[in-house]
Amino acid sequence: MPRQTDIGFPADHPTAAGHFPGNPVIPGAVLLDAALTAIAAAEGRRPGPFRLRSAKFLRPVRPGDRMLVEWQAATAGGIAFTGCVAGSPVMTGSVAMGSEALESVAS
């Protein structure tokens, strides 16, 4: 069964002014960081190391949006996650955690 958490991006989010003027979006790197930090906290882990297996951004997330992140265990100790805004998927992905991520960092 998936676990979930809600992440809000304030209307005055610092990335909004420059990404992109007149058409602000929250950058994918910020979405990933927010999702993985929230997942780690909910799982009682420190945020990292993770090894990103995959990530796909399906539609823009705007300042002022709230993103519902759901995740569940995946193969080899990883986590598969999705992010939705107003019920529409905005990103999907998976990460390796634990020893697989540590081995990747060490090599």
Rank of each mutant, 00 (worst) to 15 (best):
M67D: 09
R66K: 06
W71I: 00
G78D: 02
S54Q: 14
G77T: 00
G77E: 01
I26W: 06
G22V: 12
M97K: 10
V105M: 15
R3Y: 03
P89D: 14
E103N: 11
A11G: 11
L36V: 01
Q4K: 01
R66Y: 02
G22M: 07
A40G: 03
S54P: 09
P21Q: 11
M1Q: 05
R46I: 07
A41C: 10
G8W: 07
S88W: 12
G83S: 04
S94Q: 14
F81N: 02
S107H: 13
F81R: 08
G48A: 06
R46N: 08
G22A: 10
P10M: 08
P2R: 06
A42Q: 14
Q4M: 02
G77S: 04
E43G: 05
V85C: 14
P89L: 14
G93V: 12
G28W: 03
R46G: 12
T37S: 15
P27K: 09
A73T: 02
A41M: 09
T92Q: 13
I79G: 07
A80W: 00
A76C: 07
A29D: 10
L36G: 02
A35Y: 05
E43K: 04
Q4F: 01
L102G: 04
A80I: 00
F20A: 08
L102D: 12
F81I: 01
L68Q: 09
R62F: 08
I39F: 05
G28C: 06
H13K: 00
S99D: 15
P60M: 02
F81G: 03
